[in-house]
Nucleic acid binder design. Structure first.
Lengths: 195, 195
DNA sequence: TAAAATAGTGAACATTTGTTCACTTTTCAA
DNA sequence: TTGAAAAGTGAACAAATGTTCACTATTTTA
């Protein structure tokens, strides 16, 4: 059997369960009649960098997770169908540096479209102290989240939209206000109900 | 020990290795002196939905992976620091529906800024046959990737930018052209070198 | 402070797992 | 077509794993 199709089956199993199969389970997943077949397959996949071993356990390797990633455009680049991308990128790992202090917030409104943040987008927000002037931040104003660019001017903090139809807000003029965090990334999905 | 902090340790272990620790390994990870302590902890976490069990194996549960997700803005919503989000969202799973036929491409140029796709963004591209009029697509023109809106007019296919400074392209006028796939999502990371 | 509930311990044991080996079958190249 | 290389088989076994139990320590609550 082709190694690429076996790899896809392991990836699919891992996506579904969050773990790799044991050698016994590989019989079912890959159609083997023997446990040891799985064992030898894993050896091969370790060589390719798809899997790793660590004290009797099988772990995903660097080429196992993530998606094929085309970094830049080379002149005369062949169709991606023909040639495999050599790099893989995991969106989760790419977008989130500090998973312990990161939250996701769905954006309402169009006040930041000029900065490429559209209604329904999900912003990746790091809840770490220092927000600097020019950072895109999420502020909590009167219990509502709002995404704006933070501007520090004359010692005061302002929230600046990226859409001429909206006004600049004076953060401290709100009786109840706080900075939720700094926007470190944006994720958008097309073809979704935007309710 | 607080369950929340134990959970973070397991999450962190899982992020690093791609697998959950065995009960023996939990002694090291969680500071237990006994294997069975880990066993009872897992029981508790199964109740909370953080973990699952399936034939002698521990699997991540629905509340284990992903990030806290604030779906919508409720009036009088408390600070996220005070109240835990009840929902978790995995960016990978959210952004990618068909992992087997999806690739990532880094965007060059600013021809789609009007649609919220900026230079350096990563587009999530599904390499499945049918692209319809109005879809944002990636086309391969003379070996270069380009992101545009596909328009079908009078039986011909055009590539329409979302930036007035760029012209509409006639797809079939290029000697070598092909549709790479349909853009199903966008991921952007701030604070990155954009070379 | 005392009682009750929760969390952690350490030994024991059956199962399952990873791993090896000699062997057979299949695939591929000469 | 034949021979060599690669892939898969099935039995065997040691080591690691999950699981239970009776017990102790710690934390919580009344």
């Amino acid at each position: 059997m082709l190694i690429q199709s076996q790899l896809e089956k392991l990836r699919s199993y891992y996506r579904k369960t969050g773990t790799l199969p044991t050698y016994a389970e590989m019989q079912e997943v890959l159609g083997y009649k023997s446990k040891s077949s799985g064992y030898y397959l894993v050896n091969k996949m370790v060589q390719y960098g798809f899997l790793r071993r660590k004290n009797h356990k099988i772990l995903p390797g660097r080429n196992f997770t993530g998606l094929p990633y085309y970094q830049s455009v080379k002149a005369g680049f062949p169709s991606p169908a023909e040639e495999e991308a050599n790099d893989r990128l995991s969106l989760d790992k790419f977008l989130v540096d500090k998973p312990n202090s990161t939250i996701l917030i769905r954006v309402k409104g169009d006040s930041m479209t000029g900065a490429g943040i559209m209604e329904g987008d999900i912003v990746i927000v790091e809840r770490t102290g220092g927000a600097g002037s020019g950072d895109i931040v999420v502020a909590n104003l009167e219990g509502e989240f709002t995404v704006k660019t933070l501007i520090r001017k004359n010692g005061r903090l302002y929230l600046e939209p990226a859409n001429a139809n909206y006004p600049v807000l004076d953060l401290e003029s709100f009786p109840s206000h706080s900075l939720v965090g700094v926007v470190k990334g944006v994720a958008r999905k097309y073809g979704l109900q935007r309710a």
